[in-house]
Nucleic acid binder design. Structure first.
Lengths: 248, 248
DNA sequence: ATTTAATGTGTAAAATAAACACATTATTGG
DNA sequence: CCAATAATGTGTTTATTTTACACATTAAAT
């Protein structure tokens, strides 16, 4: 016995049927599912995204996100991690689902629904992996178009990154383990596309308690070197605000 | 010619193949896709969610979200809207994707990846539709378990609602067109599960410019009636903050 | 030794959030 | 009709957070 979705029929029936019997979904109702990864990096004080060249004729010379089909026996997160591992060689990577894009004609190969993830990696840590010139780190703010609906996916992922980075200490994944406050500020300025006051920025981060002063200095900088810090995630605890601000 | 995903193989190959040729994805790589709707309502000063009784043996007596399979020719948003229309009779409803849940064993019928949506509706507007006692409005805070992974979906949707409601004026969808400030505050207190100061709350909302004083009073209340207001979405414009707050 | 280009630091003003109390109004019940 | 009740409606003060702003210090380069 098979289960079918009833697009215009009675929902109760189909829900009950789907729930009621432990059986397979009809093949005709299945859809190709892919994962696309928006891999952010940070280099030369710019926020970058890792893209692969599309050689599809229709998208000639366009770049696209890194994606692959999800295996029916594979977790979604596992699929995203697999792509990251294959692409960057990195295993322990900040990874977060953005949302799912399901436009009917978004992919020329037919109906392919894709789950977007973004991840934050330190470019230095896998620099050697990109020998392939099909892959390239692009400045996020220079990208005007991509293959398929990937520009839209990038835009929404970038917006989500900007929001999340202000609420959670994720951005540190983009930096080397030891970093100066200037590097940290450059990172935030790149992500949020804004300039900040240095004194206020430092005040803010010192007030939080998870920057560890390493008592080391930057090396090989052509000016007075800054102190180096470490990020200690263990010290981070989400604040609980008394007043729930309503702000729109 | 078909395209296959190569779970452990070379990603470049599979991506290129998927991009390169306009052809169908192999049937074996397709996955059942469903949409589950977390339909929020507001009644008796409580935040409610609309649930359907699951009659699956394994989930005997458990409640579940309203969902259905996505038709391969159907947009994701369209599928969610279809469920809402069938369930509540309402067409113009606030609807937002939450995220996708793809656990391998989340559904007893096999691999079913589900895209969660939440929506906000005014319970009064479709009260007559729920004659079916398979459907019931539950207090969100009373729910301890649901069928499948629906409790997790509910929790994450609820968290997203709480976040969004503080940044965008969505909550008005849950109220009648005319409402008093007390009703508005009760709503926010229910959603955010907190108590607020009445004077500060009023100050906050009057400072924004989209509450229209209707010069009407509440009727049939057993106390001094409050003024009635209207929400004017047109007057809402997202503020642009100078300083990008980093707050975690 | 001088120049250069950055780091490092404190304070005051402005804006926002939070705490707080009393008079007013319509309804209800005696 | 009058008193009691239960809500609405309103302003000010304090605390906290955000913002703006300037000068001395340090190491490297010349």
């Amino acid at each position: 016995m098979h289960i079918s979705s009833t697009k215009n029929g009675d929902l109760i029936a189909s829900v009950k049927t789907l729930s009621a019997v432990q059986t397979e979904v009809k093949s005709i109702n299945r859809i190709a599912l892919s994962v696309d990864c928006v891999i952010f990096g940070f280099d030369e004080n710019k926020l970058k995204v890792l893209l692969i060249r599309s050689d599809l004729k229709k998208f000639h010379e366009k770049w696209s996100l890194l994606g692959d089909l999800v295996d029916p026996k594979e977790e979604l997160d596992a699929a995203a991690n697999r792509i990251l591992k294959q692409r960057t060689g990195l295993d322990d990577v900040y990874l977060e689902q953005v949302r799912t894009f399901g436009g009917i004609n978004r992919h020329p190969a037919g109906r392919v629904v894709t789950v977007a993830y973004y991840s934050l990696i330190n470019i230095q840590h896998h620099k050697l992996k990109i020998l392939d010139n099909e892959l390239h780190w692009h400045d996020v703010n220079d990208i005007t178009e991509l293959a398929f609906d990937h520009k839209q996916i990038l835009d929404i992922s970038y917006e989500q990154l900007q929001r999340r980075v202000q609420e959670h200490p994720l951005a540190f994944s983009l930096l080397p383990k030891k970093f100066s406050l200037r590097e940290l500020q450059n990172l935030y300025e790149a992500i949020l596309d804004t300039k900040m006051d240095r004194r206020n920025f430092r005040k803010k981060f010192f007030a939080m308690d998870f920057l560890i002063d390493l008592n080391q200095m930057e090396q090989d900088v052509p000016h007075r070197p800054g102190k180096l810090y470490n990020f200690n995630y263990n010290k981070y605890e989400k604040k609980k605000k008394k007043w729930i601000g309503i702000d729109f």
